[in-house]
């Protein structure tokens, strides 16, 4: 982590972080150490470095665990996938 400080996550954020690590085979990453406000995609050093294949895997895992279908024209996909916190907020708002 660039700053060396990880912002604290809520319980639901931690649960989603664990789901991502498991679904994406990020065995070398610790869910607890994922920064909730860092970008999920791209490689600017603070991010998780995910790519488009991961986006499909994430959608699949979220659908299976939370029953929420992601779609590209939802509000703004870029915002939804911008960080763990945004993704978590979107999933929680759509949960039945």
């Amino acid at each position: 982590m660039a700053s060396g400080v990880v912002i604290e996550k809520t319980a639901v954020e931690l649960e989603l972080a664990a789901l991502l690590v498991q679904a994406l085979n990020l065995e070398d990453r610790d869910a607890a150490a994922i920064d909730p406000v860092a970008p999920l995609f791209g490689h600017d050093q603070s991010g998780l470095g995910l790519d488009s294949i991961d986006a499909l895997e994430i959608a699949l895992a979220i659908q299976q665990k939370y029953g929420v279908e992601l779609r590209s024209d939802d509000a703004d996909t870029k915002t939804i996938f911008s960080s763990l916190r945004e993704l978590c907020a979107h999933v929680q708002s759509r949960r039945r």
């Binding site: 660039a2 995609f41 791209g42 490689h43 603070s46 470095g49 995910l50 790519d51 294949i53």
Partner: peptide, 17 residues
């Protein structure tokens, strides 16, 4: 690790990292 990946990402498609 992040610095190496950031450097590779300049020239490689993300899925190939």
């Amino acid at each position: 690790r992040a610095a190496i990946l950031a450097r590779l990402a300049q020239s490689l498609d993300p899925v190939l990292l």
